[in-house]
Computed example of a mutant assay.
Amino acid sequence: MSGRPAQLPHVTCPACGGRAFARSTGKSSPLYREVYYHCRNPDACGHQFVVSMEAIRSTRPSRFPAPLHVLPQTKWHAAANDRADNDNSPPPEPGASAAGS
């Protein structure tokens, strides 16, 4: 491993659409992290904001027999095609048919 620290992704500034860079990190746990961003828009936007990063599911199980934290397991293909509109709908009623007869 190199001596370089891990680089955090660049994000788009929600105020002006410019490129924002990670400046520091805040609250942190094994499944959650806050990252402080600063807009680098050449027109001097100057917006500063916090982005939260959260581990939400696993696409491949751990090789360790007893992981410290267990996430729901999904198939990679299903996770890659996940749509936000599916996340907010209630689960289907047991025994309900799609035909509605």
Rank of each mutant, 00 (worst) to 15 (best):
S2T: 15
S2M: 02
S2Y: 04
G3M: 11
R4M: 11
P5I: 06
P5S: 09
A6C: 05
A6W: 00
L8T: 08
L8G: 04
L8S: 10
L8R: 12
P9T: 12
H10S: 09
H10N: 11
V11C: 06
V11S: 03
V11K: 09
V11L: 13
C13A: 07
P14K: 03
C16S: 02
C16N: 02
C16M: 03
G17S: 04
G17K: 05
G17T: 08
G18Q: 02
R19V: 14
R23F: 09
R23T: 09
S24L: 02
S24K: 06
T25V: 02
G26N: 07
K27E: 14
K27D: 11
S28K: 11
S28G: 07
S29Q: 04
P30V: 11
P30W: 01
L31P: 00
L31M: 11
L31Y: 00
Y32S: 07
Y32H: 13
R33F: 00
E34T: 09
E34K: 05
E34I: 01
Y37T: 10
Y37I: 04
Y37Q: 05
H38P: 00
H38S: 11
C39L: 05
R40T: 10
P42L: 03
D43T: 08
A44H: 14
C45L: 04
C45H: 09
G46R: 11
G46K: 10
H47V: 05
H47R: 14
H47N: 15
Q48P: 00
F49H: 03
V50R: 01
V50H: 00
V51A: 14
S52H: 11
M53G: 07
M53K: 01
E54H: 11
A55C: 08
A55E: 03
I56Q: 07
R57T: 04
R57L: 15
T59I: 15
P61V: 10
P61I: 06
S62Q: 04
S62M: 01
R63D: 15
R63K: 09
F64K: 15
P65R: 07
P65W: 02
A66Q: 14
A66K: 12
L68D: 14
H69E: 12
P72N: 09
T74R: 14
T74Y: 08
T74N: 03
K75G: 15
W76R: 15
W76Q: 13
H77P: 00
A78K: 14
A78W: 02
A79G: 02
A79T: 12
A80G: 01
A80F: 05
N81K: 03
D82G: 05
R83M: 10
R83F: 01
R83S: 10
R83T: 12
A84P: 00
A84N: 03
D85R: 13
D85E: 13
N86F: 06
N86Y: 06
N86D: 15
D87Y: 05
D87I: 08
N88D: 13
N88V: 11
S89I: 15
P90D: 12
P90Y: 06
P90C: 04
P91V: 08
P92C: 06
P92M: 06
P92R: 05
P92L: 03
P94E: 07
G95L: 07
A96D: 12
A96V: 07
S97A: 07
A98M: 09
A98H: 10
A99T: 13
S101P: 15
